[in-house]
Structure formats: structure tokens, C-alpha cells
């Protein structure tokens, strides 16, 4: 058990370092000279040289990588070109809103997946079964920005119930969260439905039936615990989609989070900021996956032997 945790943590660290190195190298090698982007268009050569020295790119690549890592460890991800501010500060400002949107969407999606998926597994040929298939198919086919646009048209422009974008209070979360939920729901719904169907065939459920317990009670109390295990794994993979969905939703709804910041950085060719955002989000993603894996071994003792 102990060695499993150590190995898994080491693996996560390696992945984070690999991602950071890749992002650093890709941007450095292909993005062109940061001094030229940063300096005024017709700057004199000595001015450009000064920018180069400020940015540290007159030194060998390996040295740049080294100092980048040392600085990153101290929480310094460099200066943003566009905002003239430390990248770390910019990210820390945007991150809480993104995490809130992601958290609300994930919670909403899990709740719907569990309730609708269980009902569909219990009565596959009922209205619930049909609804669950329909929601899964639709959520898989409709891009976040399209559902977002339609939601804005209906609830913000048409009915005027909710704000169409920006961020002022919790009501700004509703539409983006629904759009994101629809996009991550399908996998969770399918997985929970399938696992619930499998669990309902187990002997201990038959025993519960023989004791005369009510079907709903069996499903939601006794079967659900086991049926939720595969859902946990899916969440790990889903975090990637979740991030993607949140980024798109932020753009559609002009929601001031990491995704919007990334797009601004991209359009301004603000490489330090792009680099910082990519590395921070990727690390976050790896950490969540690590936590889920560790949680898994706690929740389901059966998994331990297979994995280590």
C-alpha cells in the first residue's frame, strides 16, 4: 500500500515535469523570438538586445529551462507581456471562479447521472430509460458553445430570467454550469447506468429482494454504493473534458476565469501567461487524477492487489 502511494505520487510528479518541459520547449522553439513580440515594431537592435537580456533568452536553452524551474518552484512563473503583471497573480485571480464553475458543474452532473442513471437501470424500457439515452446522445452531440448560445438566447435574451454573461453573483453561474454539465454528463450517465445494471444482477441484491425490500430502496441504498465505483474512475478522465468545457463556457459567457484569460493570452501572444496557465491547469488535472486513484484504493479494498 505504502509503496503504491509513493510510486503513484512519483509518477504524477514526473508527468507534471514532463508537461512543463514540453510546454516550455514547444513555446520557446516554435513561437519565435519573445523580444520581437514584446519590443516595439521598429525598435533599434540594441533595444531588442536589451529585451532579450531582460527575458533571459540570450543564455543557453538548458540554462533558461533550469532557471524557469527554479523560479516556478518559488511560485514565480514570470511576467505577463499583456498585463505587465506577475503570471502567478493573474492565475490566482482567475482560478477560484473557474474552480467554482467546474465544481458546480461536476456536482450537478454527478447528481443527475446518479438519479437518472439508476432509474434507467432499474426500468430500462420506461420513460426514464428513454430519457437517459436521449440526454446522453444529445449531450454528446451538442458542443458546449452551441448549448451555451441557445441557453443565452432562451433564458437571457428571450425570457430575461438570467444574465447573459459576465460575473456578478451566483445567478451568473447557472447558464454556464448547465451548458458544461450537459457536455460531461453523457459518459457519467452511461457508466453509472451500465454498472448499476450489473450490480442489480448480483446475489446480494437478490437476497435483498427476497427479504422483501422495496425496489427503490434496494437500488438507491444497497446497489448505489457499488455502482458508483466505476463512476469515480470516469471522473478522473472527465476532468479533462470538464476543463475544456469550462474554458469554452467561459468564452461564451464572458466569465472571468482561467479559460478567458487563456484566450486573451493566446490572442495577445502572451507566451509567459500561456505557459503558466497550461502548466498550472495540467498540474491541477494530474493532482485530481492522483487523488482519485488514492481515493479508489480507500473506497474499494479489492482494487489494491490488482494495482500494486
Amino acid at each position: 500500500m505504502g509503496s503504491f502511494i509513493i510510486r503513484r505520487v512519483a509518477q504524477s510528479l514526473i508527468i507534471v515535469v514532463l508537461i512543463a518541459v514540453t510546454v516550455f520547449l514547444v513555446l520557446r522553439l516554435s513561437a519565435g523570438d519573445p523580444a520581437r513580440i514584446r519590443a516595439p515594431v521598429f525598435a533599434r537592435p540594441d533595444v531588442i538586445e536589451q529585451y532579450r537580456r531582460d527575458f533571459g533568452i540570450d543564455r543557453p536553452l538548458i540554462e533558461q529551462l533550469g532557471s524557469f524551474f527554479l523560479n516556478a518552484l518559488r511560485g514565480d512563473l514570470g511576467q505577463s507581456f499583456r498585463f505587465q503583471a506577475p503570471v502567478t497573480d493573474l492565475i490566482l485571480q482567475a482560478l477560484p471562479k473557474t474552480l467554482m464553475l467546474a465544481g458546480v458543474s461536476l456536482a450537478l452532473s454527478l447528481a443527475v447521472a446518479i438519479v437518472l442513471g439508476s432509474l434507467a437501470a432499474l426500468r430500462p424500457r420506461s420513460f426514464w430509460g428513454w430519457l437517459s439515452s436521449a440526454v446522453a446522445a444529445f449531450g454528446q452531440s451538442a458542443p458546449v458553445f452551441w448549448t451555451g448560445a441557445v441557453l443565452v438566447l432562451v433564458f437571457a435574451v428571450g425570457l430575461r430570467w438570467l444574465p447573459s454573461g459576465g460575473y456578478n453573483g451566483l445567478s451568473s453561474l447557472v447558464l454556464p454550469a448547465i451548458a458544461v454539465t450537459l457536455s460531461i454528463l453523457p459518459t457519467q450517465l452511461r457508466v453509472l447506468r451500465a454498472s448499476m445494471q450489473a450490480v442489480l444482477k448480483e446475489d446480494y441484491i437478490r437476497t435483498a429482494r427476497a427479504f422483501g425490500l422495496r425496489e427503490r430502496r434496494i437500488t438507491f441504498v444497497y446497489a448505489l454504493k457499488n455502482a458508483c465505483l466505476p463512476l469515480l474512475t470516469v471522473i478522473g478522465v472527465d476532468i479533462g473534458y470538464l476543463l475544456g468545457g469550462v474554458i469554452v463556457a467561459e468564452v461564451v459567457f464572458a466569465f472571468p476565469g482561467i479559460g478567458e484569460l487563456a484566450l486573451v493570452a493566446l490572442n495577445a501572444r502572451d507566451y509567459p501567461l500561456i505557459q503558466g496557465i497550461t502548466i498550472v491547469t495540467a498540474s491541477f488535472f494530474v493532482i485530481v487524477n492522483l487523488l482519485i486513484d488514492l481515493l479508489y484504493t480507500r473506497v474499494d479494498p479489492r482494487i489494491r492487489l490488482e494495482r500494486s
Partner: peptide, 19 residues
């Protein structure tokens, strides 16, 4: 495993900012 654990929108942002 590493590929599965990679957020693609971020990859796309990094790639399309460079190429």
C-alpha cells in the same frame, strides 16, 4: 496513461499559439 491524462484543449491552445 499519460496521453489519457492530458487536457486536450490546453494542448490545442499551446499548439495553435505556436503553429
Amino acid at each position: 496513461e499519460i496521453q489519457l491524462a492530458f487536457p486536450y484543449v490546453l494542448l490545442a491552445i499551446a499548439v495553435t499559439s505556436a503553429v
